[in-house]
Amino acid sequence: PEAADLRALARHLYEAYLKNFPLTKAKARAILSGKTGDNAPFVIHDMKSLMEGEQFINCRQIPLKEHHHHHQQQQTSALTAGLGGAHQGSEYGFLGMTSISEEGPQDALELRFFHSCQSRSAEAVREITEFAKSIPGFSELDLNDQVTLLKYGVIEVLIIMMAPLMNKDGTLISYGQIFMTREFLKSLRKPFSQMMEPKFEFSVKFNMLELDDSEMALFLAVIILSGDRPGLLNVKPIEQLQETVLHSLELQLKLNHPISLQLFAKLLQKMTDLRQIVTDHVHLIQLLKKTEVDMCLHPLLQEIMKDLY
C-alpha cells in the first residue's frame, strides 16, 4: 500500500480510538506527572483512604448524575473504573452492587471491589467492540470470526490499555480521578493481592517503549486482528487486514521514533508476554470462581472466559 494510504489508516484508527476511549495516554501521563494543576488525583493507599475515595467521587459526580436513577451503583463503579479509559457518567448497567462504604466484613470488601472492577471491564469490552468495528474490513469478516477475535483479543487489549494509566508506584482508576497505590493492591487478601502485580511489571516495561496514542490505536488493532486465534473459520482476510495495519504501525513508528530502530520488533515481542499474562489472569479468575463462595462473574466476562485457555 502507498504511504499516504497507510497514514490515512493510522489517522482513521486514531480517531476511532479517541472516540471510544476518552482517557487517552496523553491525558493519563499529564495526570500522573502532576501537570494538571489543581486537579491532582485522590490517592488511595489504605482501607481508610479507600472509604474516603468513595466520598471524594460521590461529591464530584453528583452534579453530573442528577438525572440518573442508579446513583449509588454508578458511583461505586465509577470509583473502581478507569482501567483503560471510560466515558464519564457511563449509562450502562451494573451488578447491583452495594456501596463500598457500607458496613460489612473486611472479607467482603475485596469481593465488592472486584465486582466493581468487573463492571468496568464489561463496559470496556463494549468500548473495545466499538473500536474493533471501526477497523476497516472488520465488520465484513465472518460474524463467527468477529466473535472469536473479540473473545481472544479483548483481555489482551484491556491489559495494554492499563499500561498508560500505570507507573511503578500505582495506577489511575475512575477516569483518572483516583490514583491507587501498588502497595495497597498488594496488601489485599490473596488471591486479589496477586491480580495486579503482573500487570504492573508488564506495564512498567511496556511504557519504556513510549508509544503515543496514535501508535497505541494501531497496536490495539494489530492485536484484535490476530489470525492465529483458535477456531477461526477464514484466516486469510484477517491476516490481510492485519498486514496492512502492521505496515501502517511500522511507518508510524519510523516517523515518530526515528532513532528507536528496533521499536517495531520490540513491540511485536510484547504480544508474546501479553498472551502469558492473559493465560495467568484467566486461571486466577477461574481459581477465584472455585474458592470464593460469594463470587459471581459478570455474564459478559463469563462468556469471554469460558473455554478460553
Partner: peptide
C-alpha cells in the same frame, strides 16, 4: 459460536445503541 456468545454477538450487531450490560 454465536450462540455461545450472545452478549458479544449483540455488541457486534447493535450499532452504537447502548446495550444493557
Amino acid at each position: 459460536l454465536k450462540e455461545k456468545h450472545k452478549i458479544l454477538h449483540q455488541l457486534l450487531q447493535n450499532s452504537t445503541s447502548p446495550v444493557d450490560l
